[in-house]
Structures are given as C-alpha cells and as structure tokens.
C-alpha cells in the first residue's frame, strides 16, 4: 500500500477532480476545459495525500469491476434498509431491541474504513457510532448477538470482502 508512487496518486486525484469539474460545468468550451485542468491540478497537488492511497491502481479493470459490484450491493442494501425501517415504523408494537455492539475489521486503509462505516450506516438496522483503530462500534436496532465474530458476519462481511479486494 505504501509503495504507490506520489505521481500515480496525484494523477488519480487530478483525473477525479477534473471529472467533477466537467460534471459541474457540463461544457466543452476550450477555455473552460483549460481552466478546469489548471484548477483541478492545483487542488490535486494540495490534497492528493489525503485523497487516495492506491492511486491509479483504482482504474485497473479488475478494481473497477469490484467497485461496480460494491455499488450494486450497496444500493440493494440501501433499499432493503429503507423497507426494513418502514416495516418497523408501521408495525404498531414497534418491534425493536436496540443496543451498541462492536466488531473488528481487517481493513487498514482509512478511506476503506470510512466507506465501510458509511455503508454500515445505510444498511438495515445499523449505524456506526464510532471507529477506534480497527474496532467499529455499531448501534443495532435488533440486537441478535453480542459476540463480535457473529456481529461481523451479520453486519460487515459482505461489504468488507469487496473493500479488501479494492483497497489492500
């Protein structure tokens, strides 16, 4: 992870920021594109060390496949989560058993942990209260178990498998 060159990380940040610029301006006029290239380069030079740790490797076909797979799993989980909450809210007896559980993640990269925490927040019945080192503290609407292995299997495994392939 540490051996990714600075140039690769800089170029990756530049490409992403320039794509964002193009999305906002939605114009192919030469002067706007040139200004966009310049500004996104300056911002990329200032922020690439926070922005990415794997650099251009993120664009390799394999990793793009995993990113698309992650996106699909994530959207399915998000829709499921909403129906889950809707079902609980519309049940007159309000069937909840809330509690805060913890589990350990195998991820090392900060960005990957952030994505995992965000995904947990948007999946059925759970949201991340805090992340300390590699321990996640998760508020769960229907606590089934306290055992951190089982919690990990129930909450995080499906996301983490893919994140490990993208970021490690």
């Amino acid at each position: 992870m540490e051996n990714v060159s600075k140039i690769s990380r800089l170029v990756y940040t530049w490409v992403v920021l320039f794509a964002l610029w193009m999305a906002f301006t939605t114009s192919l006029a030469l002067d706007e594109v040139l200004v966009g290239l310049a500004i996104s380069f300056v911002v990329a030079a200032m922020t690439f060390s926070y922005f990415t740790q794997i650099g251009l490797k993120a664009f390799s076909p394999k990793k793009i496949m995993y990113q698309i797979q992650y996106l699909i799993i994530f959207i399915v989980a998000l829709v499921k989560a909403n129906f889950h909450v809707a079902k609980i809210v519309l049940t007159p007896s309000l069937p909840i058993n809330p509690g805060i559980v913890e589990f350990e993640t195998k991820l090392n990269s900060d960005i990957a942990k952030m994505i995992l925490a965000n995904s947990i927040t948007l999946t059925p019945g759970t949201f991340t209260v805090d992340v300390i080192e590699n321990r996640f503290y998760v508020h769960w609407l229907e606590v089934e178990t306290e055992d951190s292995e089982k919690v990990y299997k129930a909450i995080a495994e499906s996301f983490e498998k893919i994140l490990l392939k993208i970021y490690e």
Binding site: A81, V85, A86, I88, V89, I96, L122, H139, L141
Partner: peptide, 24 residues
C-alpha cells in the same frame, strides 16, 4: 416514512436510525 419514524422511535439513537436511512 422517515418523518413518521422520527415521531415513533423511543430515543435519540433509534430516531437517528430512522431519520438517516429514509432521508438518504
């Protein structure tokens, strides 16, 4: 549904649960 959830849930944390998911 999210607004309804915020009304029905018993405490702050469970209200966040209902609020975040449906508002997102």
């Amino acid at each position: 549904l999210g607004a309804f959830g915020i009304l029905r849930m018993p405490d702050f944390y469970t209200r966040i649960q209902a609020g975040t998911k449906s508002s997102t």
